[in-house]
């Protein structure tokens, strides 16, 4: 079997080897462009220090913790999460009730066809 052949998806095609070749060419072009830039990087200078709003960040704030990420997304979908999260009660009887609910719906559908 020819492992390099293209994967036919019915309406399109996918060839990882062509993608890899294109990726390599893109990387070479990117490196070429980068090499024409001016080298002003100075290690251990102010260039390498993290700043928050123009002020030097305290050491314990260097790393943004997981709880601070996607605040905007969660705030925008607050209504959705306020409904969804409480359903996850952690109570076994609730889990069983959900299963019984799905069985009931499926029985209605199954016996009507």
């Amino acid at each position: 079997m020819d492992v390099t052949t293209t994967l036919e998806t019915g309406y399109g095609a996918w060839s990882p080897l062509v993608w890899l070749a294109a990726f390599a060419v893109t990387m070479v072009i990117a490196l070429l462009i980068r090499s024409t830039g001016e080298s002003r990087y100075k290690k251990d200078s102010n260039q390498t220090k993290p700043f928050i709003s123009g002020n030097e960040a305290p050491q314990d704030a260097y790393h943004i913790r997981a709880g601070n990420l996607y605040w905007g997304y969660l705030e925008a979908l607050k209504g959705y999460y306020q409904k969804l999260v409480p359903l996850h009660t952690g109570i076994m009887t609730d889990y069983v009730l959900w299963m019984f609910g799905v069985v009931a719906i499926m029985l209605l559908i199954g016996l009507s066809i």
């Binding site: 492992v3 390099t4 052949t5 293209t6 994967l7 996918w14 990882p16």
Partner: peptide, 11 residues
């Protein structure tokens, strides 16, 4: 499996 998907799918 990502580099040879055709071989995996077909075989």
């Amino acid at each position: 499996f990502g580099l040879i998907p055709t071989a995996v799918v077909e075989s």
